[in-house]
Deep mutational scan, measured.
Amino acid sequence: CHSECLGNCSQPDDPTKCVACRNFYLDGRCVETCPPPYYHFQDWRCVNFSFCQDLHHKCKNSRRQGCHQYVIHNNKCIPECPSGYTMNSSNLLCTPCLGPCPKVCHLLEGEKTIDSVTSAQELRGCTVINGSLIINIRGGNNLAAELEANLGLIEEISGYLKIRRSYALVSLSFFRKLRLIRGETLEIGNYSFYALDNQNLRQLWDWSKHNLTITQGKLFFHYNPKLCLSEIHKMEEVSGTKGRQERNDIALKTNGDQASCENELLKFSYIRTSFDKILLRWEPYWPPDFRDLLGFMLFYKEAPYQNVTEFDGQDACGSNSWTVVDIDPPLRSNDPKSQNHPGWLMRGLKPWTQYAIFVKTLVTFSDERRTYGAKSDIIYVQTDATNPSVPLDPISVSNSSSQIILKWKPPSDPNGNITHYLVFWERQAEDSELFELDYCLKGLKLPSRTWSPPFESEDSQKHNQSEYEDSAGECCSCPKTDSQILKELEESSFRKTFEDYLHNVVFVPRKT
């Protein structure tokens, strides 16, 4: 048989008469490798580009789960590009990614509803959504962080984005990388972005840091009482949809009607710091009717980097990364020049730590249904340095008659930039024990000054392991946590139920 035959053949030295091919099969003959313009397919066939392209389009058009959109890589027609490569849609070739590779997620039936953290986790790592997304989240724990972890990498949506009755959302900033909504599939009414009845939605994105392009379709905003109209108009300008909307697409009466839409800028007039305090004062603000001013709200939190936005980490279910302080308005003076500047002394802060701070007014709604208010920009203030805590785990070892090696770990709280350490030492008198000992005694162990690591005695271990207080009263049991108490109650309830079950099964009433 021919060298490319495997198993047997019907005619000697003829690659077209093989029972099976050793390498690849091409047009009725066995070959060692697939010549151009053919590609290896499933490690035994040679196919042309049209064959591989037909497989790709067949799966793409069917949208069946589990099928493969075949691509070409290293002269092979394979189910998908290997790690580190992405497909070129024009020629199906796998090309190296520039940075992290995109991950295209194809949605069944063309859309997916995100109504819980669990459903959001199914899209973790996706960068391109081939379909439409509907966000409908009523509640949950730590929602802002969970949504950002699972949806934060999405850069492109081919269909539309719909935010509907998501009472738990305060902001859409968890879509931190969303840059493009194509609108290839539109919501009824030709809408590519749809926001309806979101009672706590206050911000779409921080438009000073976020760009969003909507290729096709219109915007729809109705019944978002805490979303200011200025935020919607800003989205029109940034996304390129200005002029597409009709009169009733953006409701003037049901958007922002319960919001404090600040239209003035508060400026800080005085800032002073110490290692654990920050004193702030800002310019006074009074609405047209000074009785509408209820006070100020001061927001602050630790910020290692200057990239904080107002609604980071917030949701309507209680999660809030900001510390909020309510401040009463100052006494009002008739003389504008003698107006008191409101302020606040922030206490209990960490030394040498940068804080993000902003302040906003708290006002009631005027009778004319106009909203007044003022808010400052987010500023960054760093507390002063102070003395560091003591170095940890000092170790001293003498390696000769004239040297001592000293080692330690950095302090747990540096409280500033540590530039150097101060080492103090003092000579001590020799131990009298060394002169009084009889060095001729056998088995004498000389006193040693070398360091030995501390260890816990058996008594201390027994005390720590004991669940009861000892007789001397030195140790006591740790208080039980809520989960331990709940577990004990469940076990007790189970024992009672099981005992009742045994009584009912074992003891049967005697027939009379």
Score class of each variant (00 low, 15 high):
residue 294 L to M: 09
residue 402 S to P: 10
residue 323 T to Q: 09
residue 161 L to R: 00
residue 212 L to Y: 03
residue 123 L to T: 14
residue 235 M to E: 02
residue 393 D to I: 15
residue 388 P to W: 00
residue 173 S to M: 13
residue 322 W to I: 05
residue 384 D to A: 15
residue 167 Y to H: 05
residue 297 M to P: 01
residue 284 P to E: 12
residue 352 W to H: 10
residue 269 S to M: 08
residue 165 R to T: 06
residue 297 M to I: 13
residue 337 K to T: 12
residue 236 E to W: 10
residue 106 H to L: 10
residue 402 S to T: 01
residue 294 L to N: 10
residue 236 E to I: 15
residue 376 S to N: 00
residue 216 Q to N: 05
residue 330 P to T: 05
residue 308 V to G: 15
residue 203 Q to M: 08
residue 227 L to A: 04
residue 328 D to A: 13
residue 304 P to Q: 02
residue 291 R to F: 02
residue 327 I to N: 02
residue 134 I to F: 07
residue 239 S to H: 05
residue 316 A to R: 06
residue 398 S to T: 15
residue 347 R to G: 06
residue 149 A to C: 11
residue 226 K to I: 15
residue 288 P to W: 07
residue 353 T to Y: 08
residue 370 R to G: 06
residue 259 A to M: 07
residue 259 A to L: 07
residue 303 A to P: 02
residue 133 L to R: 00
residue 360 K to Y: 01
residue 348 G to K: 02
residue 288 P to A: 15
residue 348 G to P: 11
residue 203 Q to T: 04
residue 177 K to N: 13
residue 351 P to H: 06
residue 119 S to D: 14
residue 287 P to E: 06
residue 306 Q to S: 08
residue 284 P to T: 06
residue 231 E to N: 03
residue 150 N to I: 03
residue 239 S to M: 15
residue 196 L to I: 13
residue 350 K to F: 12
residue 289 D to Y: 02
residue 370 R to N: 04
residue 351 P to G: 05
residue 256 G to L: 10
residue 276 D to V: 01
residue 231 E to F: 10
residue 152 G to C: 12
residue 281 R to L: 06
residue 382 Q to V: 03
residue 228 C to H: 14
residue 300 Y to C: 11
residue 354 Q to P: 09
residue 400 S to K: 05
residue 338 S to T: 14
residue 211 N to Q: 14
residue 176 R to L: 14
residue 367 D to P: 05
residue 255 N to G: 03
residue 405 I to W: 06
residue 339 Q to T: 07
residue 124 R to V: 02
residue 397 V to M: 14
residue 121 Q to C: 04
residue 288 P to D: 07
residue 254 T to A: 10
residue 281 R to C: 11
residue 279 L to R: 14
residue 377 D to F: 07
residue 273 T to C: 15
residue 139 G to S: 05
residue 403 Q to H: 11
residue 286 W to L: 07
residue 199 Q to L: 11
residue 306 Q to F: 13
residue 136 N to H: 13
residue 304 P to S: 09
residue 175 F to E: 02
residue 160 Y to M: 10
residue 369 R to Y: 15
residue 242 K to Q: 15
residue 247 R to K: 10
residue 139 G to V: 03
residue 172 L to P: 03
residue 376 S to G: 07
residue 398 S to C: 02
residue 228 C to V: 02
residue 262 E to R: 10
residue 148 E to G: 08
residue 377 D to S: 12
residue 196 L to W: 13
residue 277 K to P: 00
residue 394 P to D: 05
residue 233 H to N: 02
residue 351 P to R: 07
residue 133 L to C: 04
residue 349 L to W: 00
residue 177 K to F: 12
residue 301 K to Q: 03
residue 373 G to A: 08
residue 178 L to E: 01
residue 154 I to H: 00
residue 293 L to F: 09
residue 160 Y to T: 04
residue 162 K to T: 01
residue 111 E to V: 06
residue 308 V to K: 07
residue 127 T to W: 05
residue 300 Y to H: 14
residue 351 P to K: 05
residue 236 E to M: 06
residue 365 F to R: 15
residue 237 E to F: 09
residue 292 D to P: 01
residue 376 S to F: 00
residue 299 F to D: 02
residue 185 T to R: 13
residue 357 I to E: 11
residue 369 R to A: 05
residue 119 S to M: 08
residue 398 S to K: 01
residue 342 P to A: 13
residue 321 S to R: 10
residue 379 I to D: 05
residue 326 D to S: 07
residue 107 L to Y: 12
residue 160 Y to E: 03
residue 252 L to I: 12
residue 176 R to D: 15
residue 225 P to V: 13
residue 401 S to V: 13
residue 178 L to M: 04
residue 370 R to S: 05
residue 343 G to M: 15
residue 233 H to D: 15
residue 361 T to M: 05
residue 110 G to V: 03
residue 349 L to M: 14
residue 328 D to K: 13
residue 267 K to Y: 15
residue 269 S to Q: 15
residue 221 F to M: 14
residue 224 N to Q: 04
residue 314 Q to H: 11
residue 267 K to C: 07
residue 175 F to P: 00
residue 239 S to Q: 10
residue 114 I to A: 02
residue 342 P to K: 10
residue 151 L to V: 14
residue 381 V to R: 14
residue 198 N to M: 07
residue 273 T to Y: 13
residue 246 E to N: 15
residue 351 P to Q: 05
residue 183 G to P: 02
residue 316 A to F: 13
residue 131 G to I: 00
residue 332 R to W: 09
residue 410 P to A: 15
residue 301 K to H: 13
residue 302 E to R: 15
residue 116 S to A: 14
residue 247 R to Y: 06
residue 301 K to E: 06
residue 137 I to G: 04
residue 229 L to T: 09
residue 147 L to H: 10
residue 155 E to V: 15
residue 304 P to R: 12
residue 259 A to E: 04
residue 134 I to V: 12
residue 211 N to R: 10
residue 323 T to R: 15
residue 386 T to W: 13
residue 267 K to N: 07
residue 149 A to W: 10
residue 174 F to M: 05
residue 256 G to F: 11
residue 346 M to N: 04
residue 351 P to F: 06
residue 210 H to W: 09
residue 118 T to F: 12
residue 174 F to V: 07
residue 319 S to G: 06
residue 174 F to L: 08
residue 235 M to R: 00
residue 394 P to C: 13
residue 372 Y to V: 03
residue 237 E to R: 02
residue 202 R to L: 11
residue 113 T to R: 03
residue 333 S to R: 08
residue 373 G to N: 08
residue 145 A to I: 04
residue 201 L to E: 15
residue 214 I to R: 08
residue 145 A to E: 05
residue 206 D to L: 10
residue 132 S to H: 01
residue 364 T to A: 01
residue 236 E to Q: 07
residue 382 Q to C: 03
residue 127 T to L: 09
residue 210 H to P: 15
residue 339 Q to F: 14
residue 123 L to R: 00
residue 395 I to H: 13
residue 221 F to G: 03
residue 222 H to Q: 15
residue 258 Q to G: 01
residue 267 K to R: 13
residue 409 K to T: 02
residue 244 R to V: 13
residue 255 N to F: 06
residue 217 G to S: 03
